[in-house]
Simulated scan of single mutants.
Amino acid sequence: MDTSSFKRYDTHVMDSKCFYNTYFSASTDKDLLYELVDFPIKVLYDCVKLGLIKGHRMIDLSAGTNLFQILPMYECFSDITILEINDGCIADMEKWVNGEEDAYDWAHAVKVLEELRGCSINWKEMENDLRSRVKRILKCDLNKENPTDPLF
């Protein structure tokens, strides 16, 4: 049997607001939030501290309009590309990059980073710095051999 018939990508319909509220918002169950947001931030931060993450360009592909995984390492990259699989997620990510009021709030994830660094971070300045490094938000097609073709 062809295993590709079991693939399911939310390329057309995804309620990113429900996804964010259920798994990644500050109101998410604390244990789940630790597993899905806090712990990955801590691991990535440790990798940055050890010099294991560095470069010029970062390409991010994650489920939904998530930013927490970029936070601990964004300063290592001057050119960030965010790949999304549907138009709704692209629109939501553009809201955040443009600083719109109804964009998803990632302040709770920034607080995790503050604790790791042992200092208070001006999270608005950090968000603005991250926004300035996001050079493109692109749609990718996970059904293609090269999902970013013809862009990369």
Score class of each variant (00 low, 15 high):
3 T>C: 10
8 R>L: 10
8 R>D: 01
9 Y>S: 00
10 D>I: 14
12 H>F: 14
12 H>A: 13
14 M>C: 09
15 D>M: 04
17 K>Q: 12
20 Y>G: 00
21 N>F: 02
21 N>K: 12
22 T>F: 08
23 Y>P: 00
23 Y>Q: 01
24 F>S: 07
25 S>Q: 09
26 A>D: 04
29 D>A: 08
31 D>V: 15
34 Y>P: 00
34 Y>S: 03
35 E>G: 02
37 V>R: 00
37 V>H: 01
38 D>K: 11
38 D>M: 07
39 F>A: 11
40 P>K: 12
40 P>E: 07
41 I>C: 10
42 K>S: 05
42 K>N: 02
43 V>A: 05
43 V>G: 03
43 V>I: 15
44 L>P: 10
45 Y>P: 00
48 V>W: 05
54 K>M: 03
55 G>D: 10
58 M>R: 05
59 I>W: 13
60 D>C: 12
62 S>C: 15
63 A>R: 13
64 G>V: 14
68 F>K: 00
70 I>E: 13
72 P>K: 03
73 M>C: 13
74 Y>K: 11
76 C>P: 01
76 C>G: 09
78 S>A: 07
80 I>E: 06
80 I>M: 06
83 L>T: 15
88 G>W: 10
90 I>V: 15
92 D>Q: 13
95 K>V: 09
96 W>V: 11
97 V>M: 09
97 V>F: 09
100 E>H: 09
103 A>S: 11
104 Y>H: 08
104 Y>T: 05
106 W>T: 05
109 A>V: 04
111 K>G: 02
113 L>Y: 03
114 E>A: 04
115 E>M: 06
115 E>Q: 06
115 E>N: 04
116 L>H: 03
120 S>G: 00
120 S>A: 02
120 S>V: 11
120 S>L: 05
123 W>Y: 09
125 E>A: 07
125 E>D: 12
129 D>F: 02
129 D>A: 11
132 S>P: 02
132 S>F: 07
134 V>A: 04
137 I>A: 01
140 C>D: 02
142 L>P: 01
143 N>C: 03
144 K>V: 07
144 K>S: 04
146 N>G: 01
147 P>S: 06
152 F>L: 11
152 F>C: 11
152 F>W: 14
